[in-house]
Simulated assay, not measured.
Amino acid sequence: MLAVVALLASLVPPPGPVAIEVTSVAGTGCPAGTTTVAMSEDNQAFTVTYSDFLVQGNGSEAKKSCTIELELHHAAGYTYGIAATDYRGFAHLTDKARGVVRNSYRFPGFPTRHSSREFQAMSDNWHVTDTPSGIAHGPCKDRKPLTVETELKVTGKGPGSFLTMDSTDSSVSSTFRLSWKKCAE
């Protein structure tokens, strides 16, 4: 029971506000001004919203990617890792095409977390949740930026096939749920 109480106490976010700063955005999937990042009010997650992340196959392979580097500013004595990530978008894939969503996130000098999902023969919204088998928390003393990379790819001979992480009538987002950890004193 004591171990459970200690674990739950370590998952509580740090006291005070948590601010998120985007230090860089690059890639063919996120041209300037098309990506926003916001911290949740409870400091338990941040959301990346894309307004122009679309890849169209047109009968051949096509891909686009987006790399975002972030810094979280929070009270000393805490660190965080990614507990789970929700990705959403829309896919229109003919019988002869497939779409792939690849993601990774990492702190410099720490293991990279990768995930990949494939879609085939569909014309609908998609939603996937990536839950890592183990959470890699960032360093406690020397804070490092978090790098989030996302790639959308369409392959196959299906003309008119496309995959988005956005929508024509509203933006669609990726939500990164955080796992906070109190650093050892």
Rank of each mutant, 00 (worst) to 15 (best):
V4P: 00
V5N: 02
A6M: 09
L7M: 09
L8H: 07
L8K: 10
S10C: 07
S10K: 05
P17L: 02
I20E: 00
E21P: 00
V22Q: 05
V25G: 02
G29M: 12
G29H: 08
C30N: 03
P31E: 10
T34S: 14
V37P: 00
M39T: 07
S40K: 02
D42I: 02
A45I: 03
F46G: 03
T47E: 05
T47N: 04
T47L: 01
V48F: 01
Y50S: 12
D52L: 12
L54E: 03
V55Q: 08
G59F: 14
S60T: 10
K64G: 03
C66K: 07
T67V: 15
I68F: 01
L70R: 02
E71L: 10
L72A: 03
L72E: 01
H74F: 13
A75K: 11
A75G: 02
A76S: 15
A76V: 12
Y78S: 04
Y78P: 01
A84M: 09
A84S: 15
T85C: 06
T85V: 12
D86M: 07
R88K: 14
R88G: 03
G89W: 05
F90E: 06
L93D: 08
L93I: 09
D95N: 11
D95G: 03
V101A: 10
R102K: 15
S104M: 04
R106V: 13
F107Q: 07
F107A: 08
P111E: 14
R113M: 13
H114Y: 15
S116F: 01
E118F: 01
F119R: 05
M122L: 15
D124G: 05
N125E: 10
T129H: 04
T129E: 12
T131H: 04
T131A: 10
P132W: 03
S133T: 14
G134N: 11
H137K: 06
C140Q: 01
K141Y: 09
D142T: 13
R143L: 09
L146G: 05
T147F: 00
E149P: 00
G156Y: 06
K157Y: 14
G158V: 01
P159Y: 10
G160W: 08
S161E: 09
F162N: 05
L163E: 02
M165S: 13
M165C: 08
D166L: 00
S167L: 09
T168M: 07
D169I: 06
V172F: 07
S173A: 12
T175E: 06
R177H: 14
R177V: 04
S179K: 12
S179I: 03
K182D: 01
A184Y: 09
A184S: 14
